[in-house]
Amino acid sequence: MAAKKTQAAPGELPVRPGEDPWTAAEVAEARSGLEDEAARLTAEITSSERALAGLMRDSADGAGDDEADTGTKNITREHELALAGNAREMLEQTERALHRLDAGTYGLCEVCGKPIGKARMQAFPRATLCVEDKQKQERRG
């Protein structure tokens, strides 16, 4: 028997003191935006993987290439690898945000456990840290 997927009610998502509770429309908008972002990133990863496969085929057939051609191919391959890695990381963050939305922990700081703030979550839906903890993290480097 499959486990029933539960979702937090809109008014149950955490907010900072003085903020209005999440409305059903705001939660739906956040979910839709995250789902759209996940689809876009998945397509981007697929495209990068195809490009990398082509680059790998081309580099195997490098007979007659001069050093500049080889260097250009290497730079292009490294660039595609970096793009794909970045897209995978963002997809992971996006999927994690969707999971937190379902679990009712969307908008809670993963360090201090306090609400991140609805406005911050609406501006950066993948946020996992409140402003204070994010600043501390950035200072540590």
Rank of each mutant, 00 (worst) to 15 (best):
D102R: 12
A123T: 04
Q135V: 10
Q7L: 05
G141I: 00
R100Y: 04
W22V: 01
S59L: 13
G107Y: 09
A97T: 06
T6R: 14
E92M: 11
R31L: 11
G62L: 08
A43F: 07
T70Y: 11
L55T: 02
C109H: 14
K118C: 05
A39I: 13
E89G: 05
E92G: 09
F124R: 13
G62E: 05
K136G: 02
T46F: 11
L129D: 02
E67H: 02
E89W: 04
A123M: 07
L34F: 12
I45C: 05
L41T: 01
E19K: 01
P17Q: 06
T94G: 03
A68D: 14
G64K: 10
K73R: 15
I45H: 13
L55I: 04
E19W: 03
L91P: 02
F124T: 05
Y106L: 08
R140C: 00
T70Q: 11
G64L: 10
V131T: 13
G64F: 08
I116G: 00
A25I: 08
S32E: 15
M1A: 07
T105H: 08
A103S: 12
E49Y: 08
E12F: 00
A84K: 09
I75L: 15
T70S: 15
K134T: 01
K73T: 05
C130N: 01
A51R: 14
Q137H: 05
R100Q: 13
A63W: 12
G11Y: 07
E110T: 07
K114H: 06
L91Q: 12
N74T: 08
A123C: 04
